[in-house]
Amino acid sequence: MSRKIKLGILGGGGDSLIGILHRVASAMYDKYEVVGGAFNPELEESISFAKEIGIGTDRIYKDIDTLIEKEKSLPENERIQVVSVLTPNFLHFPMAKKLLENGFNVICEKPMTTTYEEAKILQETQEKSGSIFAVTYTYTGYPMVRQMKEMIANGELGKIQKIDVQYYQGWINSIIHDKEKRSSTWRLNPEKSGISCCVGDIGTHAFDMVEYVTGLEVREILADLNYLYKDNVMDIDGTVLLRCSEYVKGVIRSSQIATGEENNFTVKIYGEKAGLKWEQENPNYLYMLEEGQPMRVLKPGHPYNSKLSLDGTKLPPGHPEGIFDSMGNIYKGVARAINGEDYHPAEFPQLRDGLRGMNFIEKAVHSHKEGNVWVKIDE
């Protein structure tokens, strides 16, 4: 029986949804054991939370520096091997950099950093360290998203000719229309969140999904963002046109003021022979569209799916799987990498995906501020 990977967590304490998501995901395939970390800025709160979730308090630290110092003093086979960074955006870069410099593997929430320059520094640091680095673009873990990727790679759609990705939420309505609230939330504070709210939070998921499922790279974008109020300095809605090549074009539509929407992430890819459509709120259905043919509905767990899709399916057909399972598949892929096992490169988003995501965010804001002009995404 293989030894479980020792996992540390930074952030994600209290009633944090992200914290619950990562802890449940890490437990799914019996690959990890949460042994410590720093869940909150205050040590006593972290200790209290550790007791609440049933882990020992001897490896709960007041900050990242103490964690690194104490863990490195332990015998190598007892140390934390990988750390999940679940803090607000502005802490991702300094924490991830320190961890890489000290030989830890890293699982980082997105956006990976707050600037593209930070992302490039992180890439250089990771290359020197040789550590595993994963960015949790969670939706890439869904079995039917992976099936979509494999079908496109196998040419079942033919040449791609249209890309349409929508990510609509309405949650920020309760904040944006209240001057005091929009001035105080960290999500709309560029010092803590980066230069973008909507594009940085959910638009980057859409951008990563485009490149993940199609296997193409976005070369140029044109963005039109909406800030809604003059005193609000961060976008909360936006439309971004895409060019992957002269003849492969598309659009990303993201919004956090789409009133009444919950988490409407829809991915539509059209080729010369067929189209595929997937909706995050109904993730077990992948729709295949062909001219003159009835619509086909593919579901997870069936032998007609790809090996990559089936590897991410835990339950028999007809048993719904969701966001926890999707994140669990990412953690499973990271575990394989840490353990030196063979793994499919699509099993977890890597640092390069986070780097391109940061480039996309900055270029989208730049495109808007320059008067909605086309700008190039770095190769």
Score class of each variant (00 low, 15 high):
Ser245Glu: 10
Ser184Gly: 08
Gly14Arg: 09
Val82Glu: 07
Asn264Arg: 11
Gln147Met: 12
Gly318Arg: 08
Thr113Val: 05
Ala206Thr: 08
Thr140Trp: 00
Ile107Pro: 04
Pro94Asp: 06
Lys128Gln: 14
Asn154Tyr: 03
Ile377Pro: 05
His319Met: 12
Arg253Asp: 00
Glu217Gly: 10
Gln350Pro: 01
Asn102Phe: 08
Leu99Ser: 10
Met151Ile: 13
Ala337Val: 07
Ile163Gln: 04
Met327Asn: 02
Lys230Cys: 11
Met95Ile: 15
Tyr168Asp: 14
Phe90Glu: 14
Lys31Val: 05
Asn372Val: 12
Cys198Leu: 02
Lys369Phe: 13
Leu188Thr: 05
Lys307Ala: 14
Glu124Leu: 15
Met358Lys: 05
Thr313Gln: 03
Trp278Phe: 11
Thr114Cys: 10
Val106Leu: 08
Gln81Gly: 13
Lys299Ala: 14
Tyr167Arg: 03
Gly141Val: 01
Val297Arg: 11
Glu347Ser: 02
Tyr287Ile: 15
His22Arg: 05
Thr204Phe: 00
Tyr212Arg: 00
Ile160Val: 15
Ile269His: 07
Gly19Phe: 02
Lys369Gly: 14
Lys268Asn: 13
Lys31Trp: 03
Ser196Phe: 02
Met209Asp: 02
Pro94His: 08
Asp231Gln: 04
Phe360Asp: 05
Lys299Asp: 05
Ile9Ser: 08
Val210Tyr: 01
Ile236Gln: 04
Ser255Glu: 00
Phe49Arg: 07
Val240Ile: 15
Ile163Arg: 04
Ser367Cys: 09
Lys277Trp: 08
Asp342Glu: 12
Thr204Leu: 04
His22Tyr: 06
Asn372Met: 14
Ser46Tyr: 04
Ile252Glu: 01
Cys244Glu: 06
Ile163Lys: 03
Phe324Cys: 05
Ile68Arg: 05
Leu276Phe: 14
Thr239Ile: 15
Thr138Pro: 00
Ile107Gly: 03
Gln161Ala: 13
Thr57Gly: 01
Gln81Asn: 12
Thr125Glu: 12
Tyr137Gly: 00
Lys72Asp: 03
Ile53Val: 03
Gln280Met: 14
Lys363Gln: 14
Glu180Cys: 02
Val218Cys: 05
Glu71Asp: 10
Gln147Pro: 10
Asp164Ile: 06
Ser26Thr: 01
Tyr137Thr: 00
Leu74Phe: 03
Lys120Ala: 09
Asn264Thr: 11
Asp342Arg: 11
Pro190Ile: 14
Asp15Gly: 07
Phe93Tyr: 15
Gly354Asn: 06
Glu127Ile: 14
Lys159Tyr: 07
Ile176Lys: 01
Thr239Ser: 13
Leu241Cys: 06
Arg146Gln: 10
Ser326Pro: 00
Met151Thr: 09
Val248Lys: 03
Leu355Ala: 00
Thr138Tyr: 00
Lys192Ser: 11
Glu362Gln: 09
Ser73Val: 01
Asn189Trp: 08
Thr204Asp: 01
Lys179Arg: 15
Lys299Pro: 08
Leu286Lys: 09
Ile121Cys: 10
Ile172Glu: 02
Tyr116Trp: 07
His344Cys: 11
Phe348Trp: 01
Gly340Tyr: 07
Asn173Arg: 04
Asp164Cys: 13
Asn77Arg: 05
Ile160Ser: 09
Arg146Ser: 02
Glu220Tyr: 09
Val165Leu: 10
Val373Leu: 05
Asp224Tyr: 08
